[in-house]
Design a protein around this nucleic acid. Sequence first.
DNA 1: CGAGGGTTTGAAGCAGCTCAAATGGAGTGG
DNA 2: CCACTCCATTTGAGCTGCTTCAAACCCTCG
Lengths: 241, 241
Amino acid sequence: MSAHTAIAAAQPNRFVPGYLAATMPQSVGGMPKAQRSPAADPLATIAQVKVIDREQSIFAEGDAADAIFRIVDGVIRLYKLLPDGRRQIIGFLQAGDMVGLAFAERYLYSAETVTACTVQRISRSQLDALLDAQPSLARKLLSVTTSELVAAQDQMLLLGRKTALEKLASFLLALSRRTDGNRAIALPMSRSDIADYLGLTTETVSRGFTKLKTSRLIRILDGGKVELLDHDALADLADCA
Amino acid sequence: MSAHTAIAAAQPNRFVPGYLAATMPQSVGGMPKAQRSPAADPLATIAQVKVIDREQSIFAEGDAADAIFRIVDGVIRLYKLLPDGRRQIIGFLQAGDMVGLAFAERYLYSAETVTACTVQRISRSQLDALLDAQPSLARKLLSVTTSELVAAQDQMLLLGRKTALEKLASFLLALSRRTDGNRAIALPMSRSDIADYLGLTTETVSRGFTKLKTSRLIRILDGGKVELLDHDALADLADCA
DNA sequence: CGAGGGTTTGAAGCAGCTCAAATGGAGTGG
DNA sequence: CCACTCCATTTGAGCTGCTTCAAACCCTCG
């Protein structure tokens, strides 16, 4: 079982339309897989399933936005680039998340797999038809999009005002929240992915991990997993200094 | 006529539900005021109008979120605070924008007037009733919320990966876009507001303005206005280095 | 005209970056 | 099973862009 599967398994049926920003800090109600009836998921019936290798592009910023994707398994990163190559990762997406711009001609960011992924592809026209046929869907999507906006605002606070160590602590806690508060969390993405998500360099991320390790706040486990040894201390770090 | 009125007049009927993030980089279609029929604005009929002084609180992070607000005139800032007082401004809002969390118990950020403002207050229960009565409203709100998310993602790129001067150039261009691309733009907010929006200090913002002035890219006008002398050069700065 | 606030400018410090090298771990082939 | 390669990660050392601290400037308003 690969690392990302562990994340995916704990992930409830999150549903994210349009732009998907930083999904990390979003708190989600836990609902066991068994309770999800297929009837409640009209998208599944029209989706086309694709399996994609790790580190592959799904679409790039500027491509015609003719489809949206829902992640069934695996981890995906969304990012924007500056002309000189500087990269900002907008979010890491997991099982249940949806990707793709709902109301624009072209994708405004790029999407790549971090791990091997299974995704559902839903064409734009099919989604539009579904929205027409089922007006309640829009309200549901509105609710989830609003949550995404909340997450994006948390990330703005992080990027604009937190120190490197505070950013790292926030990141780890957000991951922990996504996996139902588990102490051990999977980190399928590289240091450089984390750096580009937090507005840092890989070296600074690495030094931060070292500092958290020597402070006994975290412990590195096998398979790229991290154990949060002192949740409260990390929370203090994350919220402030 | 106060400075903010100039911004407001150029502002079409933007409509922003739920969390309102950085609205700056959002491009909006221009529609003259005369074409807006009151019938197309069901919110206006149930809204309670309030006039608020400059530098006043509208609501604070953590307050019960029992109403949303639509700005009729003036400029408002939304921000989040860290426990030690560091502030990140999430966005500046203007006429047409809506503020207030649609699907949470409490506001997740604070809102304050920058200039004197006129706002419409719509209670949460009234909005919910309106959404039930008029399902198409949800889809419209979804569209606009998605635009907000796009703006938030642009701001993440700015905060995480741009230099001080690039941030300033981006900010000025975004303001210019909001006022239909006018060369002269109003800056009703203080240096410290701008700093907290761009993840900088007031001193760095001030030095940036000075550098843009001596480079002949901008010119300071009366009444806190700024004229963009070289739009293209600013655009080069904003997108990259 | 004087007080009070925001803004600008100056000088010094430092958090995080850059450049560089060492370490380590996973995959590959002998 | 080991040797080797490759590349991500870690560590080190110096640098720099932004911050911090401080003071001067300047506008507005009473």
